[in-house]
Design a protein around this nucleic acid. Structure first.
Lengths: 116, 116
DNA sequence: CTAGACTGATCCGGTCCCGAAACGGATCGG
DNA sequence: CCGATCCGTTTCGGGACCGGATCAGTCTAG
């Protein structure tokens, strides 16, 4: 799938994808939650609360709350670090993998439809 | 700018753009607000509250509130319809145009960096 | 003229998220 | 050991947002 990506088409792509996610009554993720989800799945582990907070330039409690929500949605899970039990390692779940795969497909499909 | 867009790259693109918008201390728009903004700027007018509510499958108060916020940020403005004074027409602003142009550039630049 | 329809704004009770500060548990250095 | 430090979580008061119900203003058909 090759896309000629000019600013106006980038915006159209964004519009269609965001519009679709808003219309769906699926999990209504905030920007931060989505940023965390994508970071955990696309960036090599380990992922800690303070690491994510630093990466997103956001407070630690904000990360904790986002992990609560994402964990409740089963898109992500916590795991105590056995080596240093102060740490919490953020890990992937099957459901999260499926969610992101679907999301990637949505973007690609939308981009493809813009080509025409 | 041509991009070979596979799912994994679509996700990486999304991650980098969302990450950047989260990091910036600019206006922190929700998905709905962004969807409204993009719709007003990319879809032919007129745009009414009830039309946007129907388009996004969201309640009217939600649209009204989002317009309050976006109006306060000067990214959008309301205008009474002189032909039918019950209607409110949602219109663009200079600042909104600049914001979306910058956002489009951000997406294009990010996509370009993924190519390498 | 007026009764009804329609539009966007507002009210309401409730939920969620915000960052600063304080917390308990875990680890490390002396 | 034991104080200092680090980690993630919880608490707190405040603000933003949610949808259903309702409101005031406007238009229109009879």
């Amino acid at each position: 799938m090759t896309v000629e990506l000019k600013p106006v088409q980038a915006l159209a792509l964004w519009q269609n994808v965001v519009l679709e996610t808003v219309r769906r009554d699926g999990p209504d993720l905030s920007s931060r939650q989505l940023a965390i989800l994508l970071t955990v799945y696309l960036t090599p582990p380990p992922h800690t609360v303070r690491g994510l907070a630093s990466s997103l330039k956001v407070s630690k409690p904000a990360i904790t709350r986002a992990l609560d929500t994402l964990g409740q949605l089963d898109l992500l899970k916590r795991k105590r670090d056995d080596a240093d039990r102060r740490n919490v390692l953020v890990q992937r779940t099957v459901k999260g993998s499926v969610f992101l795969r679907d999301f990637g497909d949505l973007v690609v499909d939308t981009a493809g439809r813009l080509d025409a």
